[in-house]
């Protein structure tokens, strides 16, 4: 097996580029907490409405700088009353589903969470700019999938 000199140059370049990509996302994810949505918490999908924090969905202030937003997704909407959160504060979104798989996606932000029944998806995000943001479901969930949306107000 013999590699042409130029092929060695190309593969070295390619592998270094891939390593740099991995390094950049890896460092930013694990040392600055920029990990994608996830979480290992479970929940009984039939008892969502009786289980904290989903028994009282909506915004709760945890301390001066952090808020929690609990949301229940279902075909075809979100049970999330009064979605108003401040800009510049850490918002922890917790979402689960009572039926099929959905997503909880806020337009123009990093919030793009898959919502799986039996699981609680968590994502922390800080809004920079006040405004009204579109929330939508981007995982197919049935006939009304394209009607599944909502809005969050950042003040």
């Amino acid at each position: 097996m013999h590699l042409h000199k130029f092929e060695k140059i190309w593969l070295t370049f390619g592998i270094v580029a891939l390593a740099v990509f991995l390094g950049v996302v890896g460092v930013s994810a694990f040392s600055q907490d920029h990990t994608p949505a996830g979480g290992m918490d479970t929940i009984d999908p039939k008892k969502v409405n009786e289980t904290a924090p989903f028994d009282k969905p909506g915004v709760t202030q945890l301390d001066d700088d952090t808020y929690q937003v609990a949301i229940v997704a279902m075909a075809f909407g979100y049970n999330a009353p009064d979605l108003k959160v401040p800009a510049g504060k850490e918002i922890i979104f917790k979402v689960t589903s009572t039926d099929v798989v959905h997503s909880f996606t806020i337009d123009n932000t990093k919030v793009n969470m898959m919502v799986v029944p039996g699981r609680i998806t968590t994502k922390s995000y800080t809004f920079d700019k006040p405004g009204k943001y579109l929330i939508l479901c981007n995982e197919y969930c049935g006939t009304g999938h394209h009607m599944m949306f909502n809005e969050i107000e950042v003040y």
């Binding site: 590699l3 042409h4 000199k5 130029f6």
Partner: peptide
Amino acid sequence: KDDHANVDLRGTL
């Protein structure tokens, strides 16, 4: 014949 070392592959690079 199998020796690629001598072929001109500048365009490929």
